[in-house]
Each structure stands twice: as structure tokens, then as C-alpha cells.
Nucleic acid binder design. Structure first.
Lengths: 163, 163
DNA sequence: CATGAAACTCCGAAGGA
DNA sequence: TCCTTCGGAGTTTCATG
């Protein structure tokens, strides 16, 4: 019942292009039933979308780094995420507890691009930066465990169909 | 020509379930031609796979944190990534330059689970930890810019037709 | 939740620029 | 080599019970 939704979510996080036919076979339901469940999981916001995984090396973005930032002037309004959103090198932006305000995950072609990006970050958001270069990535974006206590039914997505 | 591969990659990173029909329409080629290009991008390792994006709140994993680790005894072999791989709460593991050895991105249900996980990390890998809690995530996993200098043709995936 | 049928998509074969 | 067209097999999607 609930178990089946978990199986569906687990299967789709591992392979986002699974056909409903394959999914139905895996979870032991008809194709239509699985299709309905997936649509409801999407509407509830449990499934937020689908993405291809790309090789950043192949895209000529082999250098990954974490950039911790804090405002140069802490009295000014803190809108760093919006001010930085236009920079495509920024993969992710986390607001964090601790000494820094935000932690950015960035991907660039090499040290020269990283330098340019850091200057751009500092001037765009009026912040200081502290950068940690990633040397290698043993693993990344592993599918979460979709276990027994999982799949909170009270959750509601304030969302629209993902485009 | 090359432009088309970039358009395909960009489209699939934004929506990994796009049909070949839609893709073909977007890039102005026949369905078969697009299908061939996608297959080659997959074989070259440019497209590494597809995944559904899930709401971690809905999965009852609302607490994200970064855990920086370094060995308790630096003279011992450093196999922390393998020793920690069995922990499903660990989303990603980065080997980093700087004071720490690895940076982990973890997702848990709450503070109690985080405490348990940190203990497990320390004992499993014989490391000390320094944890930064994520308060909110303005954005995450944005599609990379797939621009003019992009899509390195020299890159080879693990399997390659003999040439 | 299952069935079934229509519409659509996938995917390889064959041929042309 | 890369594209296109074409057709059978498979998939998606919806109405109905």
C-alpha cells in the first residue's frame, strides 16, 4: 500500500527513465495503477522532477569547489542567494549555521575560471569567500534510503507540474 | 552539429524524461537522429544516467548537514569513503584540499539521527568530525551551463567502439 | 485497482546526401 | 558519416467496470 509508493520512489531515483511497464512489473501492479501512483506522487511534490546525470569532465567543468561566504558588511540586507543566482557555475547554495552564512558548490573549467568566479561572487554579493577545492569525488548524489519510516503522507507540495 | 548535442544535453538535464519526439522537435532533427545522438552521448559517458528528484522533506529527511572529517590517526590507511559507503544517510563524499580530508553531505530525519550518524561515522572510519547544519537550501543541483566551450569530444566513457 | 483500446513513442532497417 | 523515412513492437494514457 504505502510500501508500493516507496518501491516506486526508490526505483525512479535509481533510474528516472524507467517505463511504467517496468515499474509495474517490479512492484506487482498493473501499468495503470502505477501510472496513477506516479502522477499522485508528482502532484504531492514527493517526486519533484527528473534530470539526466552528466559527466562534468565531459562538459569541461572538471574542477569542483566549495565556497563559504559571509557578508563584508553584516548590517546590510542579506540577499546573497538571489544576487548570485545568475552565475551558472554555482550548482547549489546552502544557508548554513556556523561561522559562514552560505556554502556554495561550484563547478568550473579550471583555476583561472575559479579565480574569476570568486571575484564575481565577492563583487556581486559584497561578501568574503573561503574556498575548499575538491580533489576527487568518491561518490555523489546517491539515492536516499527510502525505508519503512519514510514517505510522509502529511507533506503537501505547493507546486505545479514540473516543466 | 556540435551545437545540437549541447542542446540535447541541456534539455535532458532540465527534464530527464523528455521523449525523443519532443527532443527532436526542439533541436530540429528527426526522432531517429536524436535517438542516435543520445545513445552516443550515453556511450561516451557524457550522459551518465537519469534520476528522479525527490523532496527530502516528503521522505522524512528534512535535516541536511555537511560533515568534515579527518583521521584520528593520520598514519593509518585512508579508506574512509569505502568504510562509510554503507551508510545510506550519506548523499555525497568529496575528497578535499584544506584542513579536512573529506567533506560529506548527509540527510537525516532530525538532530537525534544526526547524532547517531556522527557516532557511526566516527567509529566506522576512525575519524573526527566537524559538522555544519544546513538551515535552508535556496537552490540545489541546478543544471550546468552547457555553453560554447563545452562538450569535450576527447572525453571517453568506459566503453568505446574500437576506432 | 484492472482491463482494454486508441494514440503515441521507441527503435531498428533500409536508403540517400 | 550522418541524416531521413518507414513500419512493427512496445508504451502511455484514458474511459469504463
Amino acid at each position: 500500500m504505502e510500501e508500493i509508493d516507496r518501491a516506486i520512489v526508490a526505483a525512479l531515483t535509481a533510474d528516472g527513465r524507467l517505463s511504467y511497464t517496468d515499474l509495474a512489473e517490479r512492484v506487482g501492479l498493473s501499468v495503470s495503477a502505477v501510472h496513477q501512483r506516479v502522477r499522485r506522487l508528482e502532484q504531492r511534490g514527493v517526486l519533484k522532477g527528473y534530470a539526466a546525470r552528466v559527466s562534468f569532465e565531459a562538459l569541461d567543468l572538471p574542477l569542483t569547489a566549495f565556497v563559504a561566504i559571509r557578508p563584508f558588511d553584516p548590517s546590510q540586507p542579506d540577499d546573497a542567494p538571489e544576487r548570485l543566482a545568475h552565475l551558472p557555475e554555482i550548482d547549489s547554495c546552502y544557508s548554513v549555521a556556523g561561522e559562514d552564512f552560505y556554502l556554495l558548490l561550484v563547478r568550473v573549467a579550471g583555476p583561472a575560471d575559479l579565480e574569476r568566479l570568486l571575484q564575481e561572487i565577492r563583487t556581486s554579493a559584497n561578501v568574503t569567500t573561503r574556498t575548499t577545492v575538491v580533489l576527487s569525488t568518491p561518490y555523489e548524489h546517491r539515492p536516499p534510503k527510502v525505508g519503512p519510516d519514510t514517505l510522509n503522507h502529511r507533506h503537501r507540495g505547493s507546486n505545479e507540474p514540473s516543466a
